[in-house]
């Protein structure tokens, strides 16, 4: 299996604050990785660092074999659009939604890259198959939708592009348990093919059984790694 993401020695932070400390992480194609950890331990920062949205960062991030995470000390978001065009889709906390645009506009904006734009109608069908609830809402401005519908729109927007790597930040945040269950189920049903998905989530039971592996993040470091946790567990019980 080919590698989609390889992070080596990534440190990142905001101003004088270092949030991520020398993180190493490799994600192969077809993998669905759960990134779990408490509030404020760097889950979102890791995802934002991959998208180039942190205050500063250093270390290497290779997305589908291309270096996208050069060391930089300023300009959060300056290169984000290039990283996105290289095959990243980040569905951030708070959805980064365009309030005045309709759901249809929204989904189209996800297919912004030139190649995807021509193909947008077919892609929209595909997304609507994953989130059928959006079908009826296509002409409604997103500002009028409920939290769950907004999250679906945001996720759908991310799925419109040909992303090699899907980053989903806290899909359950602020939603009723049943809705977040449905969302995560829909996410785990997506056919990944040669792309990969990272879901950052606080609620571990929500992800159990729905991801290929689970990684803990603690105080800005990937903790232990799945292998070490497994080894100790096998020998103990």
């Amino acid at each position: 299996m080919s590698e989609v993401l390889r992070i080596g020695g990534l440190s990142a932070g905001y101003g004088p604050l270092t949030v991520l400390h020398s993180v190493n992480l490799t994600v192969a194609a077809g993998e669905r990785v759960g990134l779990v950890g408490l509030n404020g331990h760097g889950k979102s920062t890791l995802l934002r660092a991959i998208a180039g949205l942190t205050g500063w960062q250093s270390g290497s991030i290779r997305l589908a074999g291309r270096e996208v995470g050069s060391t930089r000390s300023q300009g959060p978001g300056r290169y984000t659009h290039r990283i996105v065009r290289a095959g990243l889709a980040l569905m951030p906390q708070g959805d980064a939604i365009f309030h005045g645009l309709t759901v249809a506009d929204h989904l189209d904006s996800g297919a912004y890259t030139r190649a995807a734009w021509r193909d947008r109608r077919r892609r929209r069908e595909r997304v609507l198959a994953i989130f059928p609830a959006l079908e009826k809402l296509l002409d409604v401005p997103v500002g009028r939708l409920s939290g769950g519908e907004r999250r679906m729109t945001s996720l759908g927007r991310g799925l419109m592009a040909d992303a090699r790597l899907l980053l989903i930040d806290e899909p359950s945040l602020g939603l009723a348990p049943r809705i977040s269950q449905e969302l995560v189920a829909a996410l785990s049903a997506i056919e990944l093919g040669d792309s990969a998905m990272i879901i950052a989530e606080q609620n571990i039971p929500l992800l159990q059984g729905r991801v290929t592996r689970m990684l803990g993040i603690h105080a800005g470091r990937i903790k232990g790694g799945a292998e070490a946790v497994q080894l100790a567990g096998v020998n103990l019980h």
């Binding site: 998208a51 949205l53 978001g77 300056r78 984000t80 659009h81 290039r82 996105v84 065009r85 889709a89 980040l90 951030p92 959805d95 980064a96 939604i97 365009f98 309030h99 005045g100 645009l101 506009d105 904006s109 996800g110 912004y112 890259t113 927007r157 592009a161």
Partner: peptide
């Protein structure tokens, strides 16, 4: 229009600021 509504969201769909 996307950038008028939310610049960060626009960057996330690949719009160059």
């Amino acid at each position: 229009r996307a950038m008028m509504q939310n610049p960060e969201g626009a960057a996330l769909v690949g719009v160059g600021l």
